[in-house]
């Protein structure tokens, strides 16, 4: 059974009186258990919308989305037990401490406070959150520290499908690496399936088994990073993921440059 299977998924939003945005327009993809699957795409291409639909936070207009066989619309409660989503922005009570936020989160998943507090402390120390920060309000933490707390929160109740919407955006290179290592390790140890979005091409290349590139709500390319790179390479020279990205989204920045030069 697929960890995630999506067929013919469409989602549009109404904008103002008559305008509408086609956020997703016929998405289909399958993610195998234990796979790390990356979604790339320009701003506004529909990545977050896709993640939200899988996370049962948005209802699709058409198509079918299943998580380990459970339908995200009809069996949302079942799906919620299997997933966890870490969003780009820190979804925390800003005045509460990391510990208080995690206790709240754990209890929502039925984990008693005593057990949650112990696990939280383990996770904080593994992620290198300074101990003196654990009891301080979230708003006093740096962006990277907040993101680490968000990731610790996701691991309190290890999900079978982990949804990460730009998990490393805004992190320094070292923190970025730490988070990436953690994702790889989680897959290694728990067999967790990871579905992540990113703007970082190296990250996609480094940790994703397969990637899809989204543009204006459609998948314009899909495959292993190696296969995609092979597809755009010319004259036998190894292409980078960035070149793949520009090639398939048709937004060749060199184009702009060369027209300027003319």
């Amino acid at each position: 059974m697929d960890a995630l299977s999506i067929k013919g998924l469409k989602k549009r939003f109404l904008k103002g009186r008559k305008g509408e945005v086609r956020a997703l327009w016929g998405i289909g993809l399958r993610v195998a258990p234990g796979e790390i699957y990356g979604v790339l795409g320009p701003n506004g291409s529909g990545k977050s919308t896709l993640v939200r639909i899988v996370a049962t936070l948005l209802l699709p207009d058409a198509g079918e989305v299943r998580v380990f066989g459970y339908d995200v619309v009809r069996e949302a409660r079942k799906v919620r037990e299997l997933i966890h989503r870490v969003s780009t922005e820190a979804a925390f009570f800003k005045k509460l401490s990391p510990m208080e936020n995690l206790l709240y989160g754990a209890r929502l998943y039925g984990i008693p406070g005593r057990i949650a507090a112990r696990r939280a402390r383990e996770l904080f120390s593994r992620l290198g959150l300074p101990p003196e920060r654990v009891g301080k309000p979230m708003e006093q933490l740096s962006r990277g520290q907040q993101q680490k707390v968000a990731i610790a929160r996701a691991f309190l109740h290890p999900p079978r499908l982990l949804l990460l919407d730009e998990p490393t955006t805004g992190l320094d290179p070292r923190s970025k690496r730490e988070v990436q290592e953690l994702i790889l390790e989680l897959r290694e140890r728990e067999g967790t399936t990871v579905f992540l979005t990113t703007h970082d091409m190296d990250e996609a290349d480094r940790i994703c088994d397969r990637v899809a590139i989204l543009d204006e709500g459609r998948i314009v390319a899909q495959g292993t990073p190696a296969a995609l790179k092979a597809r755009v390479s010319r004259d036998g020279a190894e292409a980078t993921m960035e070149e793949v990205f520009f090639a398939v989204t048709g937004k060749e920045w060199r184009d702009d440059e060369s027209t300027e030069a003319v």
Binding site: E81, F93, K95, L96, E100, L103, Y104, A106, R107, L108, Y109, G110, I111, P112, G113, H157, P158
Partner: peptide, 25 residues
């Protein structure tokens, strides 16, 4: 980790909401 029984989970979650609001207060 094993999933807790549904009723017990809802009880813990209920306390989660109360405790969160106490912390916020």
């Amino acid at each position: 980790m094993r999933a807790p029984r549904p009723f017990r989970r809802e009880l813990i979650a209920t306390w989660g909401f109360v405790a969160r609001n106490i912390h916020l207060t």
